[in-house]
Amino acid sequence: MDQISAGLNITIFFCRQLDINQDKNRRAIEKELGPRVRFFPLPCSGRIEPLHLLRAFESGADMVYLIACPEGACRYREGNLRAKKRVQYAQKLIEEIGLEGARIELINKTAAMPANIGAIAKELLARDAKVSTSAVRSK
């Protein structure tokens, strides 16, 4: 079952460099799904903080994505590598409170993926749900 049909709330952090028209390109899907999908553009994926990821869960996300530029193609050189380590740190922390680490996923954009954040989000939402709704919001 895809993630939206499974009732999941999705939060997407992404590097703004991926899509210069990100503002416009995500509007349709935001309108369609309302608060069930939330976008947070970052100047670089390396600016992600574990705290952002945790706050996303606290505000009701079930699945959190961080979309970074392809490895080796970061405009700030190492931003996406740093992003990877920050994600790992946050995964360990949520595991300490009993949430699956897999609820946070780092995605490095590939050439095969569209250069449109709305389209990327659609593809992500259409993926099979790997987790159920988070215990943080279901109680």
């Binding site: 705290l51 949520i94 009993g98 949430l99 943080v136 919001r137 109680k139």
Partner: peptide, 12 residues
């Protein structure tokens, strides 16, 4: 981070 983790943990 810690406060957030503690709140979520309690909620769970």
């Amino acid at each position: 981070l810690l406060a957030s983790a503690l709140r979520m943990d309690a909620q769970i």
